[in-house]
Design a protein around this nucleic acid. Structure first.
Lengths: 137, 137
DNA sequence: CAGCATCCACCGGGATACTG
DNA sequence: CAGTATCCCGGTGGATGCTG
């Protein structure tokens, strides 16, 4: 397949690397794109982050996430719920109240995500410097 | 990892968490979106993955990445180079030869990325199950 | 308050052709 | 072989208005 090589595949020697699927057609590239298309949108990770340690109502979420539109928050929550990362509990009151919380699965996502966030925070400056250097030339 | 403390902001107690910016308006959300917009595109992580342990020429990359267009590979490489994640070395020969390699910075990205890939691989099935359950209802 | 539907602007990215 | 330029389509996501 496309990413395989005679020697060793990047991503394949990691503790978490896909175990049995390595013989498939497009092993890691598929996985990478899967996760990216699932969480790589503009808001999903943000929502996961906010719901990590407390549950929140729709409006509270909207207030906390700067710049998200009503529509996108709904959409994001739907897809997260669909994927089992977030749970939705509606209370039949008036006015309606709906609580959103991260599921265990959703919470387990936090760790790897934090790794990435940490990397970004750590190397943020280097990247910016590289950019300026590049743009200067 | 200490993600369970209910009193603290998600993402703020991580060893890698942005240090001084925690008091700012939207601390982590900015970082998350930064990293996402940088690497969240269709191909960047794939390229980083391939260049992780060896350098490759343009055409080799294209051959290994299934489905990438000539144009997008160029574009992706440019932006990775600009951000200091990939280095470009051209040899003034005929026909031209250009080698791409991951920089130390680029290589340091692999670890957190692998975490995410690992998570995806591990929980892939759960997500699919959740989806089917959701769609069924 | 929560959620759905509609309309629309924008841009990511594919196909292709041309240059050094 | 490596890179740039042009054209164009489709999806993402913002704004807004209507419902329970």
């Amino acid at each position: 397949m496309t990413l395989t090589d005679a020697s060793r595949h990047p991503f394949s020697d990691h503790p978490h690397a896909p175990a049995s699927t390595c013989s498939a057609e497009h092993p890691e590239s598929t996985v990478i794109r899967d996760v990216l298309s699932r969480l790589g949108d503009k808001w999903s990770l943000l929502v996961i982050g906010l719901l990590h340690d407390r549950s929140l109502r729709f409006t509270e979420l909207q207030r906390r996430i700067d710049g998200i539109s009503h529509r996108m928050l709904t959409q994001t929550l739907r897809s997260l719920e669909r994927d089992g990362l977030v749970s939705r509990t509606s209370y039949p009151e008036i006015p309606p109240r709906v609580e959103y919380a991260a599921t265990p699965l959703g919470r387990s996502l936090a760790e790897p995500v934090l790794g990435l966030v940490g990397w970004a925070a750590e190397h943020h400056a280097e990247i910016d410097a590289a950019r300026e250097a590049y743009d200067g030339a």
